[in-house]
Computed example of a mutant assay.
Amino acid sequence: MFERIRGRIGSRSAEPEALSPDNLPQHVAIIMDGNGRWAKERGLPRAAGHRSGMKAVKRAVRAANRLGIRFLTLYAFSTENWKRPKAEVDFLMRLPQEFLAIELDELIENNVQVRMIGQREGLPAHTLEAIDEAIRRTAGNAGLVLNFALNYGSRKEMLEAVRALAREAAEGRLDPEAITESDFESRLQTCGMPEPDLLIRTSGELRISNFMMWQLAYSELWFTDIYWPEFTEAHFYEAVGEYQRRTRRYGGL
Rank of each mutant, 00 (worst) to 15 (best):
residue 76 A to H: 06
residue 104 L to V: 05
residue 83 K to I: 07
residue 100 L to H: 08
residue 103 E to M: 05
residue 118 G to M: 06
residue 86 K to R: 13
residue 110 N to F: 01
residue 79 T to N: 03
residue 113 Q to G: 01
residue 81 N to K: 09
residue 116 M to I: 14
residue 117 I to L: 11
residue 63 A to T: 10
residue 62 R to G: 13
residue 59 R to H: 07
residue 111 N to H: 15
residue 96 P to L: 09
residue 75 Y to D: 04
residue 125 A to H: 04
residue 122 G to L: 08
residue 59 R to Q: 15
residue 119 Q to A: 15
residue 103 E to S: 06
residue 79 T to M: 04
residue 102 I to S: 03
residue 69 I to W: 07
residue 82 W to M: 01
residue 60 A to C: 15
residue 115 R to K: 14
residue 110 N to L: 00
residue 95 L to P: 00
residue 85 P to V: 14
residue 59 R to T: 11
residue 67 L to P: 05
residue 117 I to Q: 14
residue 96 P to W: 03
residue 97 Q to R: 12
residue 126 H to P: 07
residue 68 G to L: 13
residue 76 A to R: 07
residue 122 G to F: 05
residue 64 A to E: 06
residue 112 V to E: 01
residue 84 R to A: 15
residue 77 F to T: 09
residue 103 E to K: 01
residue 126 H to A: 09
residue 83 K to F: 12
residue 103 E to Q: 13
residue 104 L to W: 08
residue 125 A to D: 02
residue 108 I to P: 04
residue 125 A to E: 06
residue 77 F to W: 09
residue 60 A to F: 09
residue 82 W to T: 10
residue 111 N to S: 14
residue 102 I to N: 02
residue 109 E to L: 04
residue 114 V to Q: 02
residue 63 A to W: 00
residue 90 D to R: 08
residue 119 Q to E: 14
residue 77 F to A: 14
residue 104 L to F: 13
residue 94 R to L: 10
residue 99 F to C: 04
residue 67 L to N: 12
residue 92 L to C: 04
residue 95 L to N: 01
residue 97 Q to V: 06
residue 70 R to M: 07
residue 59 R to W: 01
residue 64 A to I: 01
residue 113 Q to K: 15
residue 123 L to G: 03
residue 79 T to A: 10
residue 74 L to A: 13
residue 127 T to C: 13
residue 69 I to K: 00
residue 97 Q to A: 15
residue 72 L to C: 09
residue 127 T to A: 09
residue 93 M to K: 04
residue 75 Y to R: 03
residue 93 M to D: 08
residue 89 V to P: 02
residue 118 G to I: 00
residue 89 V to T: 12
residue 102 I to A: 07
residue 123 L to H: 05
residue 120 R to D: 09
residue 105 D to F: 10
residue 62 R to H: 09
residue 104 L to E: 06
residue 64 A to N: 12
residue 73 T to G: 04
residue 105 D to A: 15
residue 90 D to A: 14
